[in-house]
Computed example of a mutant assay.
Amino acid sequence: MKKLRFILQKEFRQILRDKTILAVIFILPLFQLIIMPWAADFEVKNVNIAYVDHDHSSYSQQLENKIASSGYFRIAGKANSFKEGMAMIEYGTADLVLEIPPGFERNLVREKSQKVNLSVDAINGTKSSIGGAYLLQVIADFNSNLDVNIKSPNGQPQVPVAKISVKTTNWYNPRADYKNYMVPGILVLLLTMIAGFLSTLNIVKEKEMGTIEQINVTPIQKWQFILGKLIPFWIIGIIVFTLGLIVMYVIYDIIPKGSLWVLYLLTAVYLIALMGLGLLISTFSDSQLQAMFISLFFIMIFVLMSGAFTPVDSMPDWAILISDLTPVTHFIKVVRLIVLKGAGLPEIKNELGYIAMFAVVLNGFAIWNYRKTT
C-alpha cells in the first residue's frame, strides 16, 4: 500500500499542477451541460408553411387560423399556386406546402369529405416527418370539430356520432418535457468523454515523457501501477458527476426520484469500466495523438449507439447487438430509470451486473497487457 500511495501522490501532483487541464475537466462539462440540452431539442417548432388557398372560404380561413395558432407553425406566405409554394420550399422560406382545393367548404358541407394536398420538404428528415405529423394532427382536430358547424339539409344539427374518447397520461415525465429525458443522457456522455479521454492519455503520456522507464525499474507491481493511474481520475469523475447533478437541479429543476446511493454506486462501477478501456487503449498506444484517435473512434460509437439521442429499439438487429456490447448504453438506461422513474437496486441489478462485467474484463486486460520491463 505504501507503493500505491506514492503513485497516487505523484498523479495528484501532476493533475493539480496543470491549471488548464483542471479547467477543461470541471468547467467545460458544466457549460456543455447547460447549453447542449437547449440545442438537442426533440420538439419541432416554427415550421414554415406555404398556404395555397384556392377556395377562399370561411372554412379554409378557419383552418389557416387553427394552424397558425397551434404554436408549432408559421404561415410563411400565401401562394397563389402550388408551383409558387414549391418555389418557396426551393428557396428555403417554407418547409411544407398545404394546398386547399377549390370547393373545399362546399364539399365538406355537401359531400362530408374533402382531400387536401400536403407536400413536405424531406431534406431535413426529422423536421419534415415530425412537422408533417403535427400538421396532420391539427387538421384531424379541425376535422373532428366540423360536426358542430355542419348542419343537415333540413337545417337541424346533425345527430352526433358516438365516439371513443382517449385520454393519455404521461408517467414519470408528466409534462413530456424533452429536457427531463435528454439531460441525464447528456450528463452521461460528457462524463464518458472527460473520463475516457483523460484515462486514455495517462500511461502513454509517461511513455512520451520517458518517465515510464523509471517506473519500470521500481519494485511497483503492475496492478499497483494501473490502480494508481485509475484512482485519481475515478475521483475526478465522481466530482464531475456530482457537479452535473447540481446543474440538473439548479438549471433544469430535475431531482432524481430514486436513491442517490444507488446512482453513485452505478457511477462508481461505470467509471471503473470506462477508465479500464482508456487504460487499455493507453497500453497499446505509442503516442498521445495515436491514443486520442483510437479513443475518439470508440467514443463516437458510444455516443451514436448508446440510445442517448435515438431509441436503441429502432436500430437494426446488428446495431442493437453492438449497442448492448457498450457500457454506455447500459449506464444511460440506468441513469434515466433512477432519475425519472425512481428505480431501485432490484430493478437495475442486471444492468449493474453488465457494467461490473465490463469493469472486470477491461481492467484485467489492461493489467495483463501492460508490459513492465526493466
Rank of each mutant, 00 (worst) to 15 (best):
L4T: 09
F6Y: 07
F6N: 04
F12M: 09
R13F: 09
L16E: 02
T20D: 08
L22C: 09
I25N: 00
I27Q: 07
L28N: 12
L28R: 10
L30F: 04
F31I: 15
F31R: 12
A39I: 10
A39W: 01
K45Q: 13
I49C: 03
Y51L: 00
Y51K: 03
H56D: 13
S60Q: 06
E64A: 02
K66H: 14
S70R: 05
G71E: 12
Y72K: 14
A79R: 04
S81V: 12
K83L: 11
M88C: 00
D95N: 14
I100C: 03
I100W: 04
K112Y: 11
S113Y: 07
V116F: 05
N117E: 11
L118A: 14
V120H: 00
A122Y: 08
G125K: 10
G131P: 11
G131T: 05
A140G: 15
F142A: 09
S144E: 12
L146D: 05
V159I: 13
P160N: 12
I164K: 13
T169M: 14
T169Q: 13
D177F: 05
K179C: 00
P184D: 12
V188N: 02
V188I: 08
T192H: 01
M193A: 15
G196H: 06
I203V: 14
K205W: 03
K207A: 06
G210T: 06
I212T: 06
I220M: 10
Q221S: 14
L230V: 03
P232T: 06
P232C: 07
F233P: 00
I236E: 01
V240N: 05
V247T: 14
M248A: 15
I254G: 08
P256A: 14
G258S: 10
S259T: 02
V262S: 03
V269E: 03
L271R: 07
M275A: 03
T283I: 02
L289T: 12
Q290Y: 06
F293M: 13
F309A: 01
T310Y: 11
P311I: 00
M315A: 11
D317E: 11
W318E: 08
I320S: 03
H330W: 14
K333A: 12
L337Q: 15
I338R: 05
L345R: 01
I348Q: 04
M357H: 01
L362D: 01
L362S: 08
W368N: 11
T373E: 10
T373W: 07
T374K: 10
